[in-house]
């Protein structure tokens, strides 16, 4: 680059000379199903009964491995802030389940390490389809 491109505030807004009238039609979509694809480990029923109405398994299974204490805090946050109607008796089972799921995932990731290209954070645009 031969010169630094210090840009003066550019013209920001393009006004429509002959303002075309906006028209609004009804909109409707159908979302894909949200399957309950949860590993069969102790506590699964407690998770299904108390968590999956609001949480896709797709989210629950994609969290980084965190401590049991962190999971306890997460469940408490759901109850206190988001008013999730969680059965108090189910809390330890939910925590146990998430800890067990993550232990299983960590073991699986270990098995996959050999085909990871790198642990570096960065654009991975070229890795579609792996």
């Amino acid at each position: 680059m031969k010169r630094l491109a210090f840009i003066l505030p550019a013209l920001l807004l393009a006004s429509c000379d002959s303002a075309p009238q906006a028209t609004f039609a009804d909109a409707s979509i159908t979302l894909p199903d949200d399957p309950l694809d949860l590993p069969d480990l102790p506590g699964r029923d407690a998770v299904i009964g108390n968590c999956t109405a609001c949480h896709s398994p797709s989210t629950m299974l994609q969290q980084p491995k965190v401590s049991r204490e962190k999971w306890e805090k997460q469940v408490a946050k759901m109850i206190e802030i988001y008013k999730a109607p969680v059965d108090p008796a189910a809390i330890p089972q939910i925590v146990d389940y998430m800890v067990a799921v993550q232990a299983e995932q960590a073991a699986a990731e270990q098995g996959n390490v050999s085909r990871e290209t790198s642990g570096q954070a960065g654009p991975k645009g070229g890795l579609e389809g792996v």
Partner: peptide, 13 residues
């Protein structure tokens, strides 16, 4: 259709 690897440190990725 297929999976993509987001390169998240420690996974799941």
């Amino acid at each position: 259709g297929h999976l993509i690897d987001l390169g998240l440190p420690g996974g799941p990725s």
